[in-house]
């Protein structure tokens, strides 16, 4: 009984979750390519299968059968650890996200928010180690850029999350979604959403903040020495990160698995689909931003977070504290 409850059942849930996430990441590439090509008045992938739906499978097969090259001058163990360390946090962060009524993905811990912050903190290891172990100046510069960027944007993100935390009054994401909120709280949250979204863009290294992998200056940054499936792991990590952060945003800002105005709240099976719809809309936002906005310079990126976002987030947190004291 001990073993069943502590090891086997969680293991099954974990395996299902990983399977769903990997498939989701694969199809997110399809979704992104389709959307971005429509933004550019193209068709996008449409050869493999109907509407190009088999394209991710084809890409995967291609990546698996590519030759595995490990350059001579790299630090082998760390070189191989890099992609894994990039991928694992992206998956692990899912454990605390509620996917339906009273159903978290893995566990309802009462430190859900801290879990997200902690995993976001260790996310940069994969990149920084990949860059260092490649033993290549371009990779190292790309890795340093990416980790500096991620650490810097983590600060305003953490402060914003702390504000949400204050309003919610609980560290648990399950409770955050479950408890009803007054209308002014929603509006106050949505006022912050664009800035939080900017932080998320920088955290996930997505365009327009994809400076770590700029093709024209740094030769793809930390990914330079990687090929085949190892390179694909970085890409999968990036896409899973997109899914994860979209889910977190959907959970925090848009009520997670709940439909608006409390419609059909007791139909548990509807939860994941509502969440999926919200995530798809947020992913559309990611792609839309990528299609529209050019990349800033690195110093602009850094001064934006340190001189604008961080003070803004602190002011936001202060006002949130006042509101919380006043109305709760």
């Amino acid at each position: 009984m001990d073993w069943l409850n502590l090891v086997i059942l969680p293991a099954i849930r974990v395996i299902i979750m990983i399977f769903v996430l990997l498939t989701g990441a694969a199809y997110l590439t399809w979704y992104e390519r389709k959307l971005i090509s429509r933004f550019q008045i193209r068709y996008g992938p449409n050869r493999a299968g109907i509407y190009g739906l088999l394209q991710p499978a084809a890409d995967g097969i291609k990546a698996i059968f590519k030759e595995e090259i490990i350059p001579n001058h790299v630090d082998k163990v760390i070189y191989l650890m890099g992609p894994a360390l990039a991928l694992i946090p992206a998956i692990v962060i899912w454990a605390v996200i509620p996917i339906a009524k009273e159903t978290p993905a893995i566990a309802d811990v009462n430190i859900g928010f801290l879990w997200i912050l902690a995993i976001a903190g260790v996310e940069s290891y994969g990149l920084i180690l990949a860059g260092w172990s490649s033993n290549n100046n371009y990779s190292l510069l790309g890795a340093l850029r990416s980790s500096a960027q991620m650490i810097s944007y983590e600060l305003p993100m953490g402060v914003f999350l702390a504000s949400v935390l204050m309003l919610a009054g609980s560290f648990s994401l399950v409770e955050l979604v479950q408890n009803p909120r007054p209308w002014w709280e929603w509006i106050w949250l949505w006022a912050m959403f664009p800035f939080f979204f900017i932080c998320i863009l920088a955290e996930t290294n997505r365009a327009p903040f994809d400076l770590p992998e700029t093709e024209n200056e740094l030769v793809a940054g930390y990914q330079t020495e990687y090929g085949g499936m190892k390179f694909s792991l970085f890409m999968i990590a990036e896409y899973i990160n997109m899914i994860t952060t979209s889910t977190i945003m959907a959970t925090i800002f848009f009520g997670g698995w709940k439909l608006p105005f409390g419609i059909l709240q007791n139909v548990v099976i509807l939860g994941p689909f509502v969440l999926l719809a919200k995530v798809l809309v947020l992913l559309f936002l990611f792609v839309w931003v990528r299609a529209s906005i050019g990349r800033p310079r690195y110093d602009q990126l850094m001064s934006f977070t340190w001189k604008f976002l961080l003070p803004l987030s602190l002011v936001y947190m202060f006002i949130t504290a006042l509101l919380t004291i006043q109305f709760k």
Binding site: I111, I128, L144, S147
Partner: peptide, 24 residues
């Protein structure tokens, strides 16, 4: 639990990354 999360945030997310930065 709280300390575990803080441990990961401060030590893994902050201090070791700082040390790695200095090494680099």
């Amino acid at each position: 639990q709280f300390l575990a999360a803080i441990q990961v945030i401060i030590y893994a997310g902050g201090i070791v990354i700082l040390i790695l930065f200095v090494i680099m």
